[in-house]
Amino acid sequence: MRHPNHPATRTLARPATLLLATALLTGGLTGCDALASLDVCGGTADRVKAMRSDPVLQAAPEGAITPKGLGEVEAGCSEDSGAGWLYAERVFAHPGSREKVLDFYRTAADKDGWLLRRGAEQGHGTGRAEEGLCFTRGKDGDTFTLSVHFTDARQLKENYDYVAGPEFDSGAGFEISINSELNGADSGCFD
């Protein structure tokens, strides 16, 4: 081990100190704790794996298809300004009505232990409750939300850089997702 005053140690320490100071200053200027956000998602692999394999994400109404390129469950941990959340989601296209999709998930989610949040049906500003559903499972500190909401070609392009094909021309394109705050706090689906 080199002595702290050895010239090579001082030479290496200066860039490291400068890098650390820059990271702290940048975090202070942006309102983020730069060091805290370096490993926000560490240790979440088991929870993400459990969310990815939840049976409700594998269930789909009769006739639903997974669009080419969007067929897999996308799951992970996402960090935004030091706050992290877990997600597992997938997209389907369905040739039938939106109400058939919602009826299917009301039943499938109930069988899987999800509780429908009363008053949590949302209409993306349309005033129609048939636009989406919100469910919860667990208790505060270990809460997950499940949302079913409808999507269109524009949203698919924005969210997935996906160009929607003819499977989205009729019927209902929808996303189903499970989410959780890192600390398991109770949160809403459409906040």
Rank of each mutant, 00 (worst) to 15 (best):
D110K: 10
A164I: 13
M1Y: 13
G42I: 05
A36K: 15
E62W: 00
E158F: 15
C41R: 04
G43C: 01
S37Q: 15
L24W: 13
E130N: 10
A83Y: 00
G113T: 04
G69C: 00
V101W: 04
R52Q: 12
G132F: 13
I176D: 04
H3V: 01
G173I: 01
G31W: 02
E121C: 06
P7H: 14
Y105C: 07
D169G: 12
H6A: 15
G125M: 01
A93L: 06
G123N: 07
H149W: 14
R47G: 11
T66D: 09
L20E: 09
L25V: 15
C32A: 10
D142Y: 08
S97N: 08
H149I: 06
G27P: 11
L146S: 07
G96P: 00
R128Y: 05
W114Y: 11
A129M: 01
R117H: 04
R10G: 08
A13R: 03
F92T: 02
E62F: 01
F190K: 03
S177V: 09
R117C: 11
L18C: 03
A34M: 12
L115G: 02
F150D: 07
G119Y: 06
M51V: 06
F174W: 06
G123P: 05
L115A: 12
K139N: 05
A36E: 15
K68S: 13
K68F: 07
D112E: 08
L29T: 02
A93N: 09
A8K: 07
S97P: 00
V40N: 01
R14E: 04
